[in-house]
Lab assay of single mutants.
Amino acid sequence: DAPDEFRDPLMDTLMTDPVRLPSGTIMDRSIILRHLLNSPTDPFNRQTLTESMLEPVPELKEQIQAWMR
């Protein structure tokens, strides 16, 4: 099983494109984008959230890719 820090906190699946929300939570980009289609909010604190506020986490993405090899 993947380490917890590699798993999306909402869907508990392996992240492939991790992004940091303004709240500091790291999620998979595809999952948070799907959530934003229904509700333009951070799913953990209900603060306003837009796609432009998502910050890529390239170092975590590299760690996940290395773990998958």
Rank of each mutant, 00 (worst) to 15 (best):
Asp28Asn: 05
Asp28Val: 04
Leu21Gln: 03
Phe6Arg: 02
Gln63Trp: 09
Met15Leu: 04
Arg34Gln: 13
Leu49Arg: 00
Thr25Gln: 11
Asn45His: 06
Leu21Asn: 01
Thr48Val: 13
Leu54Gln: 00
Glu51Pro: 13
Gln47Thr: 15
Leu54Ala: 01
Pro58Phe: 09
Arg7Pro: 03
Thr41Gly: 05
Gln47His: 10
Val19Cys: 06
Leu36Ala: 00
Val57Gly: 03
Arg20Gly: 01
Arg29Gln: 05
Leu36Val: 05
Pro9Met: 07
Ser23Leu: 03
Glu62Thr: 11
Thr41Met: 09
Ser52His: 12
Asp17Met: 04
Leu37Thr: 11
Asp17Trp: 06
Ala2Met: 14
Ile31Val: 15
Pro22Thr: 02
Leu14Met: 09
Arg29His: 06
Pro18Asp: 01
Met15Val: 01
Val57Pro: 03
His35Phe: 11
Leu54Asp: 00
Met11Leu: 10
Gln65Asp: 15
Thr25Pro: 07
Asp12Asn: 15
His35Asp: 01
Asp1Ala: 13
Arg20Cys: 06
Asn45Gln: 06
Asn45Lys: 05
Pro56Cys: 08
Arg69Tyr: 11
Glu5Lys: 13
Glu51Cys: 08
Thr50Val: 10
Asp4Trp: 14
Leu14Ala: 04
Arg69Pro: 11
Glu5Trp: 14
Asp28Ala: 02
Lys61Asn: 06
Asp17Ile: 04
Leu10His: 06
Ile32Met: 01
Phe6Gln: 03
Leu14Lys: 02
Asp8Ile: 02
Arg34Asp: 09
Pro40Met: 10
Ala2Lys: 05
Leu10Asp: 01
Ile64Trp: 02
Ile64Gly: 00
Arg29Tyr: 08
Glu51Val: 13
Met11Ile: 07
Ile26Tyr: 04
Leu49Tyr: 02
Leu37Asn: 11
His35Trp: 15
Pro56Gln: 07
Met15His: 02
Ile26Asp: 00
Asp28Tyr: 03
Leu36Tyr: 01
Met11Pro: 01
Ser23Arg: 03
Pro58Gly: 07
Glu55Val: 14
Arg7Asn: 05
Trp67Tyr: 10
Asp1Cys: 15
Ile64Asn: 01
Ser30Cys: 13
Leu49Glu: 01
Pro22Lys: 03
Pro22Arg: 03
Leu54Phe: 07
Glu55Ser: 10
Asp4Phe: 15
Asn38Arg: 12
Gly24Glu: 02
Arg34Ser: 12
Met11Asn: 11
Leu21Lys: 00
Pro40Phe: 09
Ile31Asn: 09
Ile31Asp: 03
Leu36Ile: 10
Ala66Met: 15
Leu33Asp: 03
Gly24Thr: 03
Pro18Glu: 01
Met11Cys: 15
Asp1Lys: 15
Arg46Leu: 14
Gln47Cys: 10
Ala66Arg: 13
Met53Trp: 06
Thr41Ile: 09
Leu10Arg: 04
Asp12Gly: 15
Gly24Ala: 04
Ala2Pro: 15
Glu55Phe: 08
Pro18Ile: 03
Pro40Gly: 12
Thr16Cys: 15
Leu36Asn: 00
Thr25Ser: 09
Leu37Glu: 13
Leu60Pro: 00
Glu62Ser: 11
Glu5Tyr: 14
Ser39Trp: 09
Arg20Phe: 04
Arg20Tyr: 04
Met15Asn: 02
Thr13Cys: 15
Leu21Thr: 04
Asp42His: 03
Phe6Trp: 09
Ala66Ile: 11
Glu59Trp: 14
Pro43Gln: 02
Met27Asn: 00
Met11Gln: 09
Arg7Leu: 12
Ile26Gln: 01
Phe6His: 03
Phe44His: 04
Asp17Lys: 00
Pro18Tyr: 02
Pro18Phe: 03
Ser52Met: 10
Leu37Arg: 14
Glu55Gly: 04
Pro9Phe: 05
Pro9Tyr: 05
Glu59Ile: 10
Asn38Pro: 01
Thr16Ser: 12
His35Met: 12
Leu14His: 04
Arg29Ala: 05
Phe6Asp: 02
Pro58Ser: 09
Met27Lys: 00
Leu54Tyr: 02
Phe44Asn: 04
Leu33Lys: 09
Pro58Asn: 10
Glu55Asp: 09
Asp12Leu: 13
Arg34Ala: 14
Ile64Cys: 07
Pro40Ala: 12
Leu60Val: 05
Ile31Met: 07
His35Val: 07
Met15Asp: 00
Pro9Trp: 06
Gln47Ala: 12
Met53Arg: 04
Glu5Asn: 13
Leu60Ser: 00
Asp28Ile: 10
Leu14Asn: 02
Leu37Gly: 09
Ile31His: 08
Leu37Trp: 10
Lys61Asp: 04
Ala66Cys: 12
Thr50Pro: 02
Ser52Asn: 12
Met27Asp: 00
Leu14Thr: 06
Glu59Pro: 05
Asp42Glu: 06
Ala2Val: 15
Gln47Pro: 03
Gln65Ala: 12
Ile32Asn: 00
Asn38Gly: 11
Met27Pro: 00
Glu51Gln: 10
Arg7Cys: 12
Arg34Leu: 13
Arg46Ala: 14
Ile31Cys: 08
Ser39Glu: 12
Pro18Asn: 01
Thr50Met: 10
Met27Ala: 05
Thr48Phe: 15
Gln47Tyr: 08
Asp42Ile: 01
Ser30Gln: 13
Arg34Val: 09
Asn45Thr: 15
Gln47Phe: 08
Arg20Ala: 05
Asp42Gln: 00
Arg46Tyr: 14
Pro43Lys: 01
Arg29Asn: 04
Val57Trp: 07
Arg29Lys: 12
Phe44Ala: 03
Asp17Ala: 15
Pro3His: 05
Asp12Met: 14
Lys61Ala: 10
His35Thr: 03
Leu21Glu: 00
Ser30Asp: 11
Pro43Tyr: 03
Arg69Asp: 15
Glu59Thr: 11
Pro56Glu: 12
Trp67Ile: 06
Thr41Arg: 08
Asn45Val: 06
Arg69Met: 13
Ala2Thr: 12
Gln65Asn: 12
Met68Ala: 10
Pro58Ile: 09
Met15Trp: 02
Asp1Tyr: 14
Pro56Ser: 12
Ser52Phe: 11
Leu21Ala: 01
Ser30Gly: 10
Leu21Phe: 02
Asp8Trp: 03
Ser30Asn: 11
Leu49Gln: 00
